[in-house]
Design a protein around this nucleic acid. Structure first.
Length: 868
DNA sequence: TAAAACGTAAGT
DNA sequence: ACTTACGTTTTA
C-alpha cells in the first residue's frame, strides 16, 4: 500500500503541494523532517478553523477521522494485552507507538466535529431533517478521491452522481471526481487506516496484484474502463457507467444518514487484491464478456448460497450433499467460495466436483444474462425499496432471480473490477436513475450491492454490538459443544466429526484428493504421526487405526489464496449503526404485523443457504437475515482457498465459532482474522499448517475457549512452546506472563507429535482446560497422564474430558492416575493397546464410590448422568 | 516488508 | 492543557 499510496500521493501532492498542506497531510515523501514543518503550519491553520482552506479543493488534504465512539470497538475497554496497549504508558509501556488498542479500532471512523463543507463552511445538517434524501444532501460527505468535504446540496453539479461508500460514514466519491472519471487510486479513502499497522494485518502483499484485476472488470465499460486501464493503479471503483448516471447520490436506505454503497476504498483495494489474482484470469476469460458484475459484498459469499440453489437444481448436488452429510446450512463456506473469481471457482469445481456449488461457473455464465436483467430490476426495486420494503413484492419470482443475482454478485465480487464492467453494461441497459443507483452500489470493484452492503453493514454493526455482549445467544446457533464433541464422535464413527460445524465439509474437501474416504477407517496402529496421515484423514474422520506411515496427501491446499493476502488495507468498517427496522414494510406502505424478532425466530430455523435466499427478498429481510445471531457459526472447513472477501465476510458476521479446518489459510490471513474477531470463542484449525497456526503466537484472542489444532502440520513441541508461551516482548515493562491461550478450555491436539514438555506448558498455561484431546499422539504415555493429574496442577481439577484414544503408549497405569482427577467425566482410551478392559472395569468399580462411571464403549469411560 | 516511531489533529 | 491516536514516515 504504502507504495501505491506514495505514488498517488505524489500526484496528489504535486497538485496541492503549493497549496497549503492540510493537517496531517503527508507531506511529500521527502524527508520527514522537512515535512514536519509544513505540516505544522497547516496544522495551525486547520486547528483553529476547522474549515479547510478553499484551495484545498482540488485535492485537499484529507481530514483525519476520529472514532465514532459508538461502535462495539469504541465502547470496548482497552484489552491491555495487545501490542498497542502494551506500548501505552498506562500499561507500563513507553508510549511511543501511540496507537489505539487493537480491540478498539473504530469500525466506522467519522469526520471530526470540526469538519465543515468547503462550499458553505457549515457543518453537517442532517440532524435537522427527517427525510432520508434530504438528510443525505445535508450531511457532510468526504470524497475519497479529492478529500473534499461538502454537503451534496452545495454541489453545483448535482446532476452527476456521487458514489457513496457504504462502509465508511460520510464517505463517497464526489460527483466531480466521479464525473471526471477520477479514480480513487490515490488513496484509500478517508479514515482508512493502514491495516498494516495492525499486528495482524495481512496486508502488504496485495500491492502487486491488486491493481490489475480491477481493471479487468472495467474492460467492458467504455471510457472509464479506458481510463482505468491507463491508470491501473487506481482503484477499481467507479466505472464509466458512473458517469452517465446523474442522479444525486441517494441516501442510504437505512435511514441514517449514512453513505451508501460504495465500497470503501479499502474494500476496493481488497477486492482489487482479489481481483488481481483473478484479474488475469478473468480478464482473459470472462471479462470480455461483460457480465454485469455487481459489487460484491462480503455478504455475497453468503449470497452465493443462493446461487447454489440453482446449481443444486442443476445437479444432484443436494443428494450428494446429503450423502456427504454436509449439513445444508453449512454450505456457507461454499458461498464464500463463490465469491472468488471464476477461475477459482472453476478450480474448486473441479476439485470439489461434488459440492453443490460446483456448477458455479456454469451458473455464472447463465447468470450473466440473467443478471443483467436482474440488475435492472433490482435497481428499480432499490429505488422503490429505499423507502419501503419493495422487494418483498416480487419475492417469489424474485427469489429465483435474486438467488442468481446473489450468486452472481458473489462471483462478480470475486472479480473486483467486475463491478465496473458490469456496471457499464448495466448502465447502458438501464434507465438513468437505475444507473445512479448502481453507482452507488457498485462501487467499482467489488461493488457491493448497495443495499445489501448497507444492510449488512448495519447488521454487522449490530451484530458486533451484540457480540460485544458475549452473552448473546444465537437464536439457533449450533452449540459449540457439538463441535467440541466432534472429535470424539469422530473416533467412534470415524466420521462424525465436525459435523458440528456444518460438517460435511470434510468429506468433500478430501474428495479431491482422495480424501474422500471417510470414516470408518479402521483402527490399526498409528505409529508415527505423520501429518500425512492427517491429511488423509481429516481430523474428525481420523480412523482410529490408520497406518500413519502411509503416505498421504494433504487436501490440497487448493490454490493458495491468491494475492488475497493483500487484504492490507482492507479495513472493514461497517457503516454507522442503524438498527434494522423492527417491522417489515409492505408495498402498501404499512408494516407487516410480525415484529423483527418474530421473523428472526423463524430465520433461526433456516440454513445459511436459505438465509441467503431470504436476503434476496427485500432489504429488510436482507438485514434481518444478516443478524449475527444467525451466523454464530461459520464453517469454511475444507474450503481450499480463503480469499480476502471471505475474510471480510467472516469479520462482518463476527462469528463465535469459526471452522477453518483443512484450509490453506495463510498466517497473515489468520492473524488478520483473529485480530478482528474479538468475540471468537471457538477456532478450529485442524489440518492447517503450523505456519498459519503460528498466527496465534502473535495475535490476541483472549476469549478463545476452544482451539482445535488436530493434525496441524509441523506442530511439535517447539511450536507448542511458541504457542503457549507468554508474549515475548523485549521492551521493559511489557512482560506479560500470561499465555494468550490462557482461557482455553477445550484443546484438541490429536495427531500431533508432542511430548510431555508440551503438556507441561499446557498445564502451566491453561488453567481452565477442561477438555483435552490427545488422541493419536504417539508420544503420550502414562507419565503424561501423571503430569496432567499431578498434585498442584490446575488440570488435575479442571479436566473433565480426556481423549487418549489410539495412544499406544498409554497403559492401565494411566487409569489409576485419572482417579486423582476431581472433575473427570470422560476418559477415552479406545484403541489403546496397552489398556485393558479389566483395568477400565476396575476403575469404574473404584470410582463408583465417589462418582458413578460406566463403560460406554470398550475403553471409553463415561461418567453417568453427564455428558461432557 | 513489517514494525516502530512520530508529528500533530482531534477530543476532553 | 492534556490525552488519545490518525496517518504517515522511519527504522529494523
Amino acid at each position: 500500500m504504502a507504495m501505491s499510496l506514495s505514488a498517488d500521493d505524489e500526484d496528489y501532492d504535486s497538485d496541492t503541494a503549493e497549496q497549503q498542506r492540510l493537517p496531517n497531510r503527508p507531506k511529500p515523501k521527502m524527508a520527514a523532517s522537512t515535512a514536519t514543518t509544513p505540516a505544522a503550519t497547516t496544522s495551525s491553520s486547520t486547528a483553529t478553523a476547522v474549515k479547510l482552506p478553499s484551495n484545498r479543493t482540488s485535492s485537499g488534504a484529507r481530514r483525519r477521522r476520529t472514532r465514532c465512539r459508538k461502535c462495539e470497538a469504541c465502547v470496548r475497554t482497552e484489552c491491555g494485552e495487545c501490542h498497542f496497549c502494551k506500548d501505552m504508558k498506562k500499561f507500563g509501556g513507553p508510549g511511543r507507538m501511540k496507537q489505539s488498542c487493537i480491540m478498539r479500532q473504530c469500525i466506522a471512523p467519522v469526520l471530526p466535529h470540526t469538519a465543515v463543507c468547503v462550499v458553505c463552511g457549515e457543518a453537517g445538517k442532517e440532524d435537522t431533517l427527517d427525510d432520508e434524501d434530504e438528510k443525505f444532501n445535508a450531511m457532510l460527505m468526504e470524497c475519497s478521491i479529492c478529500n473534499e468535504i461538502v454537503h451534496p446540496n452545495c454541489l453545483k453539479v448535482k446532476d452527476a452522481a456521487g458514489v457513496v461508500n457504504d462502509e465508511l460514514p460520510n464517505c463517497w466519491e464526489c460527483p466531480k471526481c466521479n464525473y471526471a472519471g477520477k479514480t480513487g487510486k490515490q488513496k484509500r479513502g478517508p479514515g482508512f487506516k493502514y491495516a498494516s499497522n495492525l499486528p495482524g494485518s495481512l496486508l502488504r502483499e496485495q500491492k502487486a496484484g491488486r491493481d490489475g484485476r480491477e481493471e479487468g472488470d472495467q474492460t467492458s465499460t467504455g471510457a472509464a474502463s479506458i481510463k482505468r486501464k491507463s491508470e491501473r493503479e487506481e482503484t477499481p471503483r467507479l466505472k464509466t457507467e458512473d458517469l452517465p448516471s446523474r442522479l444525486p447520490p441517494l441516501l442510504t436506505p437505512s435511514g441514517l444518514p449514512r453513505p451508501r454503497s460504495e465500497v470503501p476504498n479499502f474494500l476496493r483495494k481488497k477486492r482489487k487484491l482479489f481481483d488481481d489474482d483473478e484479474e488475469e484470469e478473468e480478464a482473459s476469460a470472462k471479462k470480455k464478456p461483460k457480465k454485469s458484475w455487481r459489487p460484491e459484498e462480503s455478504l455475497i459469499p453468503k449470497l452465493s448460497h443462493m446461487k447454489t440453489e440453482e446449481e443444486e437444481d442443476n445437479s444432484d448436488e443436494e443428494e450428494e450433499r446429503q450423502e456427504k452429510r454436509e449439513p445444508p446450512r453449512r454450505s456457507f463456506k461454499k458461498d464464500y467460495s463463490t465469491v472468488r473469481k471464476e477461475e477459482e471457482l472453476e478450480e474448486e469445481r473441479r476439485e470439489e466436483r461434488d459440492s453443490p456449488f460446483r456448477s458455479l461457473k456454469e451458473f455464472n455464465t447463465l447468470r450473466k444474462e440473467e443478471d443483467q436483467e436482474e440488475e435492472k430490476e433490482e435497481d428499480d426495486e432499490e429505488e422503490d425499496e429505499e423507502s419501503n420494503g419493495k422487494r418483498g413484492r416480487d419475492s417469489s419470482p424474485a427469489l429465483k432471480n435474486h438467488s442468481l443475482s446473489l450468486e452472481s454478485d458473489a462471483s462478480r465480487c470475486s472479480s473486483p473490477r467486475a463491478g465496473p464492467s458490469s456496471e457499464g453494461s448495466e448502465t447502458q441497459e438501464k434507465a438513468p436513475r437505475a444507473r445512479a443507483r448502481r453507482h452507488r452500489r457498485k462501487p467499482p470493484n467489488r461493488q457491493l450491492s448497495a443495499e445489501l452492503s448497507k444492510q449488512l453493514n448495519m447488521e454487522i454493526r449490530r451484530t458486533e454490538h451484540s457480540l460485544a455482549n458475549e452473552n448473546q445467544q444465537p437464536l439457533k446457533s449450533e452449540p459449540e459443544d457439538s463441535e467440541n464433541e466432534e472429535p470424539k464422535r469422530g473416533l467412534r464413527n470415524g466420521t462424525t466429526g465436525n459435523g458440528g460445524g456444518g460438517g460435511g465439509g470434510v468429506e468433500r474437501g478430501a474428495g479431491g484428493e482422495g480424501g474422500g474416504e471417510r470414516p470408518h477407517l479402521r483402527a490399526r496402529e498409528m505409529n508415527g504421526t505423520s501429518w500425512e496421515l492427517r491429511h488423509f484423514y481429516p481430523p474428525q474422520i481420523t480412523p482410529l487405526g490408520l497406518n500413519r506411515s502411509s503416505p498421504t496427501v494433504r487436501p490440497l491446499p487448493a490454490r493458495s489464496p491468491p494475492k488475497c493476502v493483500q487484504m492490507e488495507r482492507h479495513v472493514i468498517r461497517p457503516p454507522p449503526i442503524c438498527p434494522p427496522p423492527d417491522r417489515l414494510p409492505l408495498a402498501d406502505g404499512r408494516n407487516h404485523i410480525a415484529p423483527r424478532e418474530a421473523w428472526l425466530a423463524i430465520f433461526g430455523h433456516l440454513s445459511h443457504r436459505e438465509l441467503c435466499v431470504c436476503m434476496r427478498v427485500c432489504r429488510t429481510w436482507n438485514r434481518w437475515c444478516c443478524d449475527k445471531r444467525l451466523w454464530t457459526h461459520i464453517d469454511l472447513k475444507r474450503c481450499k482457498s480463503i480469499t480476502p472477501l471471505m475474510l471480510s465476510g467472516i469479520i462482518r458476521r463476527q462469528p463465535i465459532t469459526l471452522d477453518l479446518s483443512w484450509t490453506n489459510i495463510s498466517k497473515k490471513q489468520l492473524s488478520w482474522l483473529i485480530n478482528r474477531l474479538p468475540g471468537l470463542r471457538v477456532l478450529l484449525l485442524s489440518g492447517c499448517s503450523w505456519v498459519a497456526v503460528s498466527a496465534l503466537c502473535t495475535s490476541s484472542c483472549p476469549l478463545l475457549r476452544t482451539l482445535d489444532l488436530q493434525w496441524v502440520e509441523g506442530l511439535k513441541d517447539p511450536q507448542m512452546r511458541d504457542l503457549l508461551s507468554p508474549p515475548t516482548d523485549n521492551r521493559p515493562g511489557q512482560m506479560d506472563t500470561r499465555s494468550k491461550l490462557r482461557n482455553v478450555t477445550d484443546l484438541r491436539l490429536a495427531g500431533l507429535d508432542i511430548t510431555d514438555s508440551s503438556l507441561r506448558l499446557i498445564i502451566k498455561n491453561m488453567p481452565l482446560l477442561s477438555r483435552l484431546d490427545l488422541s493419536y499422539c504417539n508420544h503420550i504415555n502414562d507419565q503424561s497422564v501423571n503430569l496432567l493429574t499431578a498434585a498442584g496442577t490446575t488440570t488435575r481439577d479442571s479436566l473433565t474430558d480426556v481423549n487418549l484414544s489410539v495412544c499406544n503408549r498409554v497403559t492401565d497405569q494411566s487409569l489409576s492416575y485419572f482417579k486423582r482427577c476431581g472433575s473427570i467425566c470422560r476418559i477415552d482410551l479406545r484403541f489403546c493397546k496397552q489398556v485393558s478392559r479389566q483395568a477400565c472395569e476396575r476403575f469404574i468399580a473404584e470410582m463408583s464410590v465417589i462418582v458413578p462411571f460406566k463403560l460406554q464403549e470398550d475403553k471409553l469411560l463415561q461418567k453417568l448422568h453427564s455428558t461432557p
